[in-house]
């Protein structure tokens, strides 16, 4: 008897359960708003290690290296070829760079302003190039890495006829020929 009662109770409960469900109004679920998610390139966020100067150096051609002007030019006093005090730090920096890249070979070009004569300026340009070279050698750059050439007053940097232009033209330029 007890068993039948229990069965009835269960059944009733189930009927109740079903009817109560059926009574609920069917609700249409609203379309969810699209969530905009920014897709990021994860690679971008990954911090790449910066190229070392050595790697940059490896990638560049001799022309590009010269264009990048790693080696700065120095200027001279009128009719003189000794290295001015204020130009020594530039030569020091050039020497440091040359030490860092020991395969580099350079030519130092000696130039003059137009206030000298053709022949004498050829000799003066040579002395300027040599004095810059000697200074680099004194800083430990092997002499065989540095050649010199004089352009006299054949290749002025700027065309002006004032002292500022002349100063710019009285110069030694450091041209990389081999890396």
């Amino acid at each position: 008897m007890r068993k039948t009662i229990a069965v009835w109770v269960i059944m009733l409960a189930m009927v109740f359960l079903f009817t109560s469900c059926a009574k609920k109004k069917p609700v249409v679920a609203p379309t969810p708003e699209p969530v905009s998610v920014e897709v990021e390139d994860v690679d971008k966020k990954v911090e790449k290690p910066a190229l070392t100067e050595e790697e940059i150096f490896q990638q560049k051609t001799v022309e590009e290296l010269n264009k990048a002007a790693h080696l700065k030019r120095i200027n001279f006093d009128f009719d003189r070829f000794f290295v001015r005090e204020d130009m020594k730090p530039i030569l020091q920096a050039n020497a440091d760079w040359l030490r860092r890249f020991p395969t580099v070979e350079i030519v130092i070009e000696g130039h003059c302003d137009e206030r000298g004569t053709v022949e004498y300026n050829m000799a003066l340009g040579e002395k300027r190039a040599q004095s810059a070279r000697n200074y680099l050698v004194s800083l430990g750059i092997p002499a065989n890495r540095v050649k010199t050439v004089s352009y006299g007053k054949n290749r002025p940097l700027v065309p002006g006829v004032d002292e500022a232009s002349y100063f710019q033209n009285r110069r030694a330029e450091f041209v990389i020929t081999k890396k």
Binding site: E119, M122, A123, E126, K127, Q130, S150
Partner: peptide, 9 residues
């Protein structure tokens, strides 16, 4: 002629 081959003009 002039030459600087010996280091000086």
């Amino acid at each position: 002629y002039t030459s600087t081959r010996d280091g000086n003009a």
